[in-house]
Structures are given as C-alpha cells and as structure tokens.
Design a binder for these strands. Structure first.
Lengths: 150, 150
DNA sequence: TAATTTTAGTTTAACTATAAACAGTTCATA
DNA sequence: TATGAACTGTTTATAGTTAAACTAAAATTA
C-alpha cells in the first residue's frame, strides 16, 4: 500500500493522502451503490432527485453545478426521472432560457420510501469511524474541496 | 452545503462525512485529471502504467484488483497501452491462464517524463492542508477503505 | 434599435466502464 | 485418468459521461 515514488517529504505526504482519498471514496461509493441497485435509479439520478426533494425546484444548470456533472448529462438524468414520473420540467416564465425541474408527489413518495435505507447504508459504512473522526474527515475534505472556487 | 436530512445524530454525522468525502474526491480527481489531459493517457491508463512502472510485471488480474476496475476494463486499458508501445503482454509459462503485462523501455521513459508533473499537481492540490492534516486524512480514509476486506 | 455576446438547455459523437456470456487453462476429486 | 469446478482473460452488449456543435432566449453595446 502507499506510494513508491521517491520525492520530497511534501510530495510523499500529498501522494499518500491522494491515493488513500481516491481509494476510500471509490470503495465507499461502490459499496453504497451496490446497496442501492435495488431502487432502480443510478446514483446520479438518485442524487438529483434527492437534491430536488430537499431543495424544491431547481433549474438544470444548478443541478449540474450541485452534482458536479455536465449539463448534457443533466438532460439525460432529468429525462429518466421525468419518464418515471418523479420530476417535471417547467419553463421559467421570467427567463425562458431556464427550465425549472421540480419533484412530483410520486417522486416525493419514492424518496420517502427509499431514503431511510440509503441513509442507513451510509451510516453503516461510516460506523468504522467514531463521531469525532467523521467530523474530522468532513472538515479535512471540506478544506480540500473548497479549493475548487479558485 | 451539507445535508437536510432529519435523522439521528449518528446518521447526520455519517451523511455529512459521506457528502464531503464524495465531493472532495470528485473535485480533486477532476482537477488532477485536467492537469494531465496533456499527457494523452486517461487516468486509468496512467494509473495502470504507473503501477507497472513501480511494481514491474503484473498479471491483468492484479491490475484489475489494484485499480479497482473490472477485468474487462483492464483488457482495454492494456490494449491501449500496448498500442502505444508502453507495455507488452506475455503469457505466463507456469500458468498459461495468466498474462503478464510489463512496462517497456518506452513506457518507462514516458513515466519518467510525466510523473514529476503529475506528482507536482497532486502536491499543489493538497497544499491547502498541512503535513499533519494530510496524514490525518490519509489515516481516516484508510480506516474507511479497509472495510472492503469484509 | 440592431448587432454582438452570453447563457441554458439539447443533440450528437466519442469515450469509458461494467456485466454477462464465452474460451482456454488448471485444479480437485472421485 | 476423467469429469466437473474454478479461474484468467476476451468479446459483446449496454449504460453513463463528456465535449463540441447547435438552438433559443436574454443581456450588452454600439
């Protein structure tokens, strides 16, 4: 495990953290995903629906930014959710470039039916860390992720 | 930022850590990737070549496990690297089910040419964390990732 | 006001990844 | 030894993702 790279201490430390971060996130998301295949939605679709469930109506642009996926991808995601009857599109009358996407009653019911299991799987996954460790991890990841504003 | 989910403290803490972990890893890998598009290899190909550079010859099965990608994906990755002349396949004579993949001289040169920039990009990316924070992060991620043995 | 630029969403083409079925090799065991 | 199980790698079919070109709408500016 770890890196074989011969470099400065600064580089070794960063590489090690990088590798561990990538591997853990990949493992965790893989395991969460496998818990969730039952629900029929893939993780992007689930993530989009979850955002709409919590935040109400959003333009596709915002969904794209929140989920860190391309706008062309959002088209497909919303198409799929719309076909399932979980969301609906509505052109914004103030600025007709925007398409507001909102969750339907059916989508809301779906979320209420599946979210508990999803949350439980995550809690399960993170149960190997104490509450304080989870907080630490969140703080460090946040600091790392913040750089993206640059 | 964070979760809107109403649940137990245990669930909230895990959800928060989960979201931060996913977002940060996605942001970081995205930014590293964009640094590296110049090199012509995608990150899987680069990762495989890097493993071969450090570890010598490996069967595809091992590459699959190390990189956490499917064995069918490894076929394509090795195909691409082979076409570039960076690796070569050789059937293992002890057990002919195995195909050993090894890095060529050209692949090694490529690695020596590109690795420093890659490592530097990572060090840059993690420079918002102190050495001790990087170590903390690595430790927590490792603990989280270890669960996968289960 | 007219022309230009910018923005949101869509379409298309290329790429990446996986699962499932398959072929060849080795191992187990009867 | 022979049959069946397990394993490595390949092929095929399919799904998810993105970038680039495009359409329509709004903002800018000349």
């Amino acid at each position: 495990m770890g890196t074989q790279y011969k470099g400065s201490a600064r580089e070794i430390g960063a590489l090690n953290a990088y590798i561990k971060l990538m591997r853990s996130s990949q493992s965790v998301s893989e395991r969460i995903r496998s818990h969730k295949t039952v629900t029929g939605l893939n993780s992007s679709q689930f993530g989009a629906l979850e955002a709409l469930y919590h935040l109400g109506s959003l333009p596709q642009k915002t969904i794209s930014e929140k989920l860190l996926v391309s706008k062309s991808n959002v088209v497909g995601i919303v198409d799929a959710l719309e076909k399932l009857g979980f969301v609906k599109r509505q052109q914004n009358s103030d600025d007709r470039r925007f398409t507001n996407v909102s969750i339907t009653e059916e989508g809301r019911k779906y979320m209420e039916r599946t979210l508990p299991d999803h949350v439980n799987a995550i809690a399960e996954e993170f149960s190997c860390l104490t509450a304080s460790e989870q907080e630490q991890l969140a703080k460090l990841c946040r600091k790392l992720g913040l750089k993206e504003q640059a």
